[in-house]
Design a protein around this nucleic acid. Structure first.
Length: 828
RNA sequence: GCGAAAGUGGCGGAACUGGCAGACGCGCCGGACUUAGGAUCCGGUAGCCGCAAGGCUAUGGGGGUUCGACUCCCCCCUUUCGCACCA
């Protein structure tokens, strides 16, 4: 064999895999399936090591599972619609399609040069009509079921990106992508009714036992389920009164005022009746605070009295109605009862405006706070006081009784509220899926019939970045005939949020070329759900909750038979450079191709996996990369040294092995056990690699010992070690592994190989070292048989020359023997 | 403010169920081989005391439980992330 030249191996084996279509798969009921997926990529142009880390993680798992005999689906694709390409078109005049397809071609090359084992035959790009037509198809299905609907609403508008943002895309009042401050705007919008699945999504989270707890917590908080009650307060002159939502109906006797959101429909009506002009101007001012001053921190609580009063249906008491800037219009009923005793916001508000504070809960310690002396709200539960007939009940009991009474008397009802809102998917953008709807002056909103899909995105050539949808300026696109009446009609010109594209692409991979359906249910029945999914934590709520929603929609359409699309989720840590996330705009990207030229794909892959556990964030440094190249060269050399002897070696005869040979075998099998557990169970790639490094170190020692006159059995043991090591390292360093596997006489490549199996007898230790502690300090180490009896171990320990001096003049009070681990002697 | 996670050598990190702290690698130091090596091989490398044997101190700080704590409990500090008026 020649010296280690990884770049040659990269080329040779990538070519072979490609020629053999080595990673393409078909459904095979005779084999267990494994669906391994990494979050697909936005084709920004260049993959940096931060992206690449995720693909390597997935590839390690995919390659392991193949060797373990699974039928592995490991596909890749492109999240190819989106703002950056369109923004670039506005700036530089290159059509989004042109730049996107070029970026895809380049990034695909990068991934292939890394030797990621994708089934490229299933590659998809969401910007192509044969993908996005199924977005349209699904949209129509959802429209038919009332899951897609249209309403006018206040939306978040990014003045820089010129588009509507979902609430999730607004971070601290600013655009998640460009950081500009977000303003409000009123538009007709399409929504997906994700709230219909709020309870289902919440309940499903409990079953996701192989998801990081952190992600589940974020999702639960995002859904934000609250149990409480709606209660109607009467208002003079308003037949419907006003409804509030509360989780603490037990404190309703402490309600000394009522607050409305500035956008509440009653605000103008009450202002008109009471003739207070300042109410409207103030409400207007609060609305202007929204998203900016209000969200950015200390806007402070502000309110204005409307002059009107509402009647507490329980006590019959008249309470003043205020408008307050801290009440949210879009949550609950947009109106809140003010209970300063139990709610910190209400307390602050009451103190600021001199409203009454009334104590209605006796705390667990028996005290009732003095309202005049209170400095903060007391939100704890206790016993209800000053509450008429309910006095003396516990908070929980009072809630039950009051809710029941409110229902019986017709002014209230038990109610569950969610923080989760319906998903606004309309975008006034070009580079996305056209919404397949037609507005007819006669028939209203009519879906484009399925047989006319896809609604193809017209080739717009001029990108101005203006505020309305670019499609509205394409007359041949806009003007259509109504599918129902045949009269002139107008096409919807908004496109879909790109999160729609990414919410189901994992099902398309199961049947990527289907031209009758998004996928054949039978294909997803075989491949689904995804067994291992890895990607960045930044998708913990958006992408991962939308995908869970879509899975439920497909389920209810009868197309899939599971509810949860991803069984095991790994959230990969980001790769930082100089303390920052890598990004083109920051100019701190590390280009994998540069590393490939230096050390080859295998050293890069293995190093990226070695540097830290996958979930952990890491700071990139080139320093260790050369070390990994050296280690792979070490693997190469030891395999090379034994090759000739190994090929001629007889089978291992365990009974005739010498001490050194048994030691190497033991290490070999111990390493198989460790590496398998680390990758497969613990997903700790770094320690798997450490374990292999230990084996190689021991192997070098063995080689040195055997240098003089290696026996046939030594060669046999060496052969076993090399062949195990080659397969263990192959998920990380597949090119090197293939070459060595072939050099050891195997045909058909690793595709024909199987994962090594632990021989428990060979792995069994012959002797173990047991530390002996005296009063907590290690004083001796005993080398004994692993199955030694506790009593014998104790005797040996107490008689040991290094232990005896520490016992002199003292009494042995206690001896603890931890089986096979340690002896602890207590003296005093 | 609320919630979660994490703090271990010069650096990245390991220690799985409470049982030898620092595996493995980077870096550094020394040696061998060499015309030479930034190649390769071997050895050393937490700190302090000691020629050595050995001893003492160490997992952010302080307490506790235990024969025994990086690991469990309480308080505090720092960092990172998430949520941030959701009634």
């Amino acid at each position: 064999m020649s010296d280690y030249h990884p770049q040659d191996l990269d080329q040779k084996w990538q070519q072979r895999w490609n020629d053999a279509q080595a990673f393409e798969v078909v459904e095979d009921p005779s084999k267990p399936k494994f669906y391994c997926l990494e979050m697909f990529a936005y084709p920004s142009g260049h993959a940096h090591v931060g992206h690449v880390r995720n693909y390597i993680i997935g590839d390690v798992v995919a390659r392991l599972k193949r060797l373990q005999g699974f039928n592995v689906l490991h596909p890749f694709g492109w999240d190819a619609f989106g703002l950056p390409a369109e923004n670039a078109a506005i700036k530089g005049g290159i059509h989004p399609e042109t730049s996107t397809l070029a970026n895809i071609a380049h990034m695909k090359g990068q991934l292939q040069r890394l030797g990621i084992s994708y089934a490229w035959g299933r590659e998809l790009a969401t910007c192509l009509p044969d993908y996005y037509r199924w977005n349209q198809w699904l949209f129509t299905r959802m429209f038919e079921r009332g899951l897609a609907y249209r309403r006018r609403s206040t939306v978040n508008w990014c003045p820089s990106c010129q588009t509507v943002l979902a609430n999730e895309q607004v971070v601290d009042g600013a655009c998640w992508r460009c950081g500009s401050l977000v303003v409000e705007k009123d538009l007709e919008q399409w929504f997906f009714k994700i709230t219909a699945y709020a309870d289902d999504l919440l309940a499903g989270a409990d079953g996701l036992t192989s998801w990081p707890e952190k992600v589940l917590t974020m999702q639960r908080n995002w859904i934000g389920r609250s149990e409480g009650a709606r209660v109607r307060f009467a208002i003079e002159g308003e037949p419907d009164g006003v409804e509030v939502f509360t989780t603490r109906i037990d404190t309703i006797y402490g309600a000394t005022f009522l607050t409305l959101a500035p956008e509440h429909p009653l605000v103008p009506r009450l202002a008109e009746r009471t003739g207070r002009a300042d109410v409207l101007t103030e409400a207007q001012r609060y609305r202007a605070q929204d998203r900016t001053a209000r969200m950015s921190g200390e806007a402070g609580k502000e309110g204005v009295f409307t002059g009107a009063y509402a009647v507490n249906p329980f006590s019959g008491e008249r309470v003043p109605i205020w408008v307050a800037n801290f009440v949210l219009g879009e949550y609950g009923t947009g109106a809140v009862m003010g209970v300063p005793h139990g709610d910190q916001r209400d307390f602050e508000f009451a103190r600021k405006y001199g409203l009454e504070v009334r104590a209605v809960i006796r705390a667990a310690d028996g005290t009732v706070p003095d309202p005049a002396a209170m400095t903060e709200a007391h939100g704890d539960e206790g016993t209800v006081v000053n509450s008429g007939a309910y006095d003396g009940m516990t908070s929980a009991e009072a809630r039950r009784r009051m809710t029941a009474d409110a229902e019986a008397r017709g002014f209230g009802t038990g109610s569950v509220q969610f923080r989760l809102k319906d998903w606004g998917i309309s975008r006034q953008r070009y580079w996305g899926t056209p919404i397949p709807m037609i507005h007819c002056p006669v028939d209203g909103v009519v879906p484009v019939p399925d047989d006319q899909l896809p609604v193809v995105l017209p080739k717009v050539t001029e990108f101005t970045g203006r505020g309305d949808s670019p499609l509205a300026h394409v007359p041949e696109f806009v003007h259509v005939t109504c599918p129902k009446c045949g009269g002139p009609a107008r096409r919807e010109t908004d496109t879909m949020d790109t999160f729609v594209d990414s919410s189901w692409y994992f099902y398309r991979f199961a049947d990527a070329h289907n031209d009758r359906l998004p996928f054949d249910p039978a294909a997803v029945k075989y491949w689904g759900p995804v067994d291992f999914y890895s990607g960045g934590v930044e998708h913990a709520i958006l992408h991962l909750i939308y995908s869970r929603f879509f899975a439920r929609v497909f389920r209810d359409l009868g197309m899939i038979d599971h509810s949860e699309p991803f069984t095991h989720l790994l959230t990969q840590g980001m790769v930082l450079k100089d303390g920052n996330v890598m990004s083109k705009s920051k100019g701190n990207v590390v280009d994998p191709d540069t590393m490939l030229q230096k050390v080859g794909a295998d050293a890069l892959r293995t190093y990226v996996m070695f540097v830290a556990p996958p979930e952990k964030e890491v700071e990139w440094s080139d320093a260790g990369l050369d070390g990994m190249f050296r280690w792979l060269a070490r693997v190469w050399r030891v395999a090379d040294q034994w090759r000739e002897a190994a090929l001629a070696a007889p089978p291992i005869d365990a009974a005739t092995l010498g001490r050194e040979e048994r030691a190497l075998r033991r290490k070999t099998h111990e390493t198989i056990r460790r590496v398998t557990a680390d990758i497969d169970v613990r997903k700790q790639m770094n320690t798997a690699i450490s374990a292999m490094m230990e084996l190689v170190n021991e192997f070098y020692l063995f080689t040195e010992q055997q240098k003089a006159a290696p026996t046939a059995q030594a060669a046999a043991v060496a052969r076993e070690a090399v062949e195990a090591l080659v397969r263990l390292v192959s998920p990380f360093a597949p090119h090197t592994a293939e070459e060595l596997w072939e050099a050891y006489g195997h045909t058909g490549g690793l595709a024909a190989a199987s994962w090594p199996v632990v021989d428990d007898a060979a792995a069994q230790a012959e002797e173990v070292v047991i530390p002996v502690q005296v009063n907590g300090k290690v004083r001796a180490r005993l080398t004994v048989a692993p199955d030694i009896a506790d009593a014998d171990l104790e005797t040996l320990a107490l008689a040991d020359a290094a232990v005896v001096p520490h016992l002199a003049g003292k009494t042995v009070r206690k001896v603890v023997v931890a089986k096979g681990r340690l002896v602890s002697v207590v003296v005093g």
